[in-house]
Design a protein around this nucleic acid. Structure first.
Lengths: 315, 315
DNA sequence: CTTTATCATAAGAATTACTTATAGTAGTCA
DNA sequence: TGACTACTATAAGTAATTCTTATGATAAAG
């Protein structure tokens, strides 16, 4: 095979000519001249030591050897072609499977998706919700191709992944406008349900009050722990207590008057949302398109934020 | 595949490098430089849009894409290699299946085969006997490859076959030396068993006497019909009657004193023995070797014949 | 017989694939 | 830690291959 490998392109040419039964037609299909086909076939026949075609008036018929070679090499070349197609980068047009933390999906992405569809009608998005932080299940799904993009809080371990930061935002308490009107100091917050994510160490009410020099345990407030920030925001919008929100995820609700920032104090740490995809993905062009759009929407939102929010520094 | 076909040789290189896990070792196997391998792999990776190898200290390991490509392309390349091996000419060394008329096999070929073995120890001959003339069964066996060479009387119909004449020889009556001593004229032959091949039109006793102007039916001689000339010669050597022999097939027996030419008159036609093989045989080199040796032996025999025989013209 | 369609061939131009020399990287050993 | 070894990556130039263009050869059609 070592001496034969250089003739592999000629075998492909042979298969096309065998199918066309005409060098001229094969030349058209392959976008080269008939003379090139003729020379390739002559070279191949010389190498193989026998004719593969014989002249039949105005066309070429296969010899017995030609028939044998075609019947055995056709499936083999198709297998190689199929293997390569599995590897090559996909075009921009096509499907993307996106997995996202529940709050980002429902509070940020879904309200904007119609604009993505207008801008990119040839990309369809399949959206799933997962966890807030990168889980081992998410990694596995990315590795196996079940998921193309995972959107969650930024993680340190980006092995085999490409990280694309979406935004970094301050975290502060939010309440319904009705409750918001009655809050005059941090201490008055203790009179309402204090809703937080379960198993949350840093972004907890205890830590928030502590950063203000207040020991919330003395007041023994009502507390509620929920699975996701999305659940918390739903309760708060309905007037039940207060919870924390990342600025970019609550900004739209505040602009609509469904929420207000309940206090100016923000946690001393911000939160970064990022998107992750396989470094060896074949859908890189499509993913890049999607993430570029998100970045654009983030900067549009940032422009709107300048007019409306009250924020504050963390100290 | 059209744009990819030119890279098929690189895929073969890739498979060798994947197996070696080393460009340097692959270069040795393929008898090109390491730099050529490196460039081919770079070109292939660029075409496929992703890496196939990654550096692992002093060797190269396959990426996931590389593993996938190797697992799918290896069997395909092997299939192509196998198809080509089925087509390419075989070397001189190997086996030949020879079919021959019985008399040629036993009276000419077998007594000489030891010399062929000495001259060509790397060619083994499998010898079968068939019929004196080319039969449809012989053609089928040649076509299917059961037989590589058929040796028989020359035929007119050489479709798909290559003809190689071995010799053309006169046909004359032979007897044992004892009977030969007592034959003084054609007529005295009528006193002995006249042995001939059954269903033989031209080379028959009736025609031989007719060519001499003798009507053998008046003498009502004893006649015996046999299946092959080889059978006839066996009987004649044992002293039973007379039969016809082609010069080259009986020459050795005459030289040994086992037979004598019983009369000088030869038939007006000679007999040609020829060898036939498939025009598209892959064993052409081997067959040619064998037939060249036969031709050599024929001419050696012809040189010996000048000293010994009495022959005569047919008219 | 002329024309048309198709493959075969020769010569030259363009492109590709290789080699040589050297740089870069990682592993080994004293 | 530095020197040495083993191996791949890269640039530049050379050699080989492959293609194109033009034309010849062959067979079929009208």
């Amino acid at each position: 095979m070592i001496k034969t490998a250089r003739y592999l392109p000629y075998i492909h040419t042979f298969l096309v000519a065998a199918q066309c039964k005409s060098y001229t037609q094969a030349a058209e299909k392959l976008c080269i001249t008939q003379a090139a086909i003729s020379q390739q076939m002559r070279t191949l026949e010389t190498h193989l030591g026998q004719p593969l075609f014989y002249r039949q008036g105005r066309s070429m018929a296969l010899t017995q050897a030609g028939e044998l070679l075609a019947s055995q090499c056709q499936p083999a070349i198709e297998q190689i072609s199929s293997a390569i197609a599995q590897l090559q980068p996909q075009p921009i047009a096509g499907e993307l499977r996106v997995s996202s933390s529940p709050s980002f999906a429902s509070r940020w992405l879904m309200p904007r998706m119609w604009r993505f569809s207008l801008a990119h009608p040839d990309i369809s998005i399949q959206l799933h919700t997962s966890s807030r932080r990168m889980s081992s299940e998410s990694r596995s799904q990315l590795g196996s191709g079940e998921i193309d993009v995972e959107i969650c809080l930024a993680t340190d371990d980006t092995r085999n992944l490409i990280e694309h930061n979406l935004f970094t935002g301050p975290v502060y308490p939010v309440a319904s406008p009705f409750i918001g009107k009655q809050i005059t100091s941090p201490e008055t917050l203790l009179n309402y349900w204090l809703i937080e994510r379960e198993n949350e160490r840093h972004f907890s009410w205890e830590n928030w009050f502590k950063q203000l020099g207040i020991d919330m345990c003395l007041a023994n407030p009502s507390q509620l722990q929920v699975i996701s920030l999305d659940n918390a925001l739903s309760a708060v919008c309905a007037g039940h207590g207060v919870c924390f929100g990342v600025h970019q995820l609550v900004q739209d609700l505040i602009a609509k008057g469904d929420l207000v920032q309940a206090h100016t104090h923000c946690f001393d740490q911000q939160l970064t949302f990022a998107a992750y995809y396989l470094s060896q993905t074949r859908k890189q062009a499509r993913i890049q398109c999607f993430l570029d759009w998100i970045s654009h929407e983030v900067s549009v939102q940032a422009g709107q934020a300048d007019d409306q929010t009250i924020l504050s520094s963390s100290v």
